[in-house]
């Protein structure tokens, strides 16, 4: 089980934050920082650098997950923390964009807590990140 020191959760649902916390608790006592949208996440990352993982929702108000990743690139902000994007059914195009912008894995809502746990383990443990579905490779 890989060690997780500090995790940034970016999602506009407080309930989802609680769910991820329950999953992350299984990795031991990591510190969790909450952001309710991409803008808040950018502000946090400007102050704090030492995250081990970012769980990023795509569909959020104010600044969504894709805009967040684009802003990071524009501003030359390099986070060493791998990003796992949380997508929804029908959001394949956005998922592909996120993967191209550097996300290391993705998972589609709704998912079981076990699936998220396994994905975090793979991504943080340095194993092969989840590949985008076949049909996504053709979207430019």
């Amino acid at each position: 089980m890989p060690a997780l020191g500090k995790v940034l959760i970016v999602d506009d649902s407080k309930l989802i934050h609680q769910m991820y916390r329950l999953v992350l608790m299984r990795f031991g006592g990591c510190r969790i920082v909450d952001a309710m949208n991409g803008l808040e996440a950018l502000e946090i990352l400007a102050r704090e650098k030492d995250f081990d993982l970012i769980l990023l929702d795509i569909n959020m108000p104010i600044m969504n997950g894709i805009q967040f990743m684009e802003k990071m690139r524009e501003n030359g902000m390099r986070s060493h923390a791998p990003i796992i994007v949380i997508s929804t059914e029908g959001g394949e195009e956005d998922t592909v964009r996120a993967m191209r912008l550097g996300a290391r894995g993705y998972i589609v809502k709704p998912f079981k807590s076990e699936s998220l746990y396994d994905l975090i383990e793979k991504v943080v443990g340095g194993k092969s990140p989840a590949a985008a579905p076949e049909e996504m490779h053709n979207i430019s």
């Binding site: 506009d12 649902s13 989802i16 769910m19 569909n59 108000p61 809502k109 709704p110």
Partner: peptide
């Protein structure tokens, strides 16, 4: 729409698929 989207997502994550 924002509220409905969150409600849909939360319902799905809780396992209430029909409501989702």
């Amino acid at each position: 729409l924002g509220s409905l989207h969150t409600l849909k997502g939360n319902s799905g994550m809780m396992g209430f698929e029909s409501l989702q």
